[in-house]
Computed example of a mutant assay.
Amino acid sequence: MASRILYDSPALTISVNYLDDWLYLDWHGQLDDEAIVPGALKLLELLKQERCAKILNDNTHVSGLWADAAKWGGNVIFPQLHAAGCRYFSWVHSPERYSQLSAELAMQQTSAGITFMSFQDLPTAAAWLRRM
Rank of each mutant, 00 (worst) to 15 (best):
F89Y: 07
V37I: 11
A106M: 05
F78C: 05
L65S: 13
F89K: 05
E96P: 01
V62A: 00
Q109W: 12
A11R: 07
A112L: 04
D68T: 13
W72I: 07
N59V: 08
A11F: 09
R4A: 14
G73D: 09
F89M: 05
L6W: 06
D68K: 02
Q80H: 12
I77K: 07
Q30F: 15
E34F: 12
E34I: 12
H93A: 15
C86N: 08
L43C: 04
D32C: 12
V76S: 08
D26T: 13
Q30S: 14
T60P: 00
V62W: 08
I36L: 11
L105A: 04
P95A: 06
G39L: 09
G39C: 11
H93I: 15
S102G: 05
A69T: 02
H28I: 09
E96I: 00
I5A: 02
H28A: 03
D21E: 12
C52Y: 01
C52D: 06
N59H: 13
V37Q: 10
F116I: 05
S3I: 09
I55A: 03
F116K: 03
W66A: 10
W72R: 05
M117F: 14
M107R: 10
Q108M: 10
H28C: 08
L23E: 07
L6Y: 06
A103W: 00
M117R: 15
M132R: 15
W91L: 15
M1C: 08
R51G: 12
E104Y: 04
A125H: 01
I36S: 00
A125D: 00
A2N: 13
T60K: 11
M132Q: 15
N57E: 01
Y7S: 02
S94P: 02
D58Q: 09
S9K: 03
H28G: 10
L6H: 05
N57W: 06
T115D: 12
I5Y: 02
D121C: 11
A53T: 01
R131H: 07
Y88I: 01
P10L: 01
S111R: 14
W27M: 04
Q108D: 13
P38R: 01
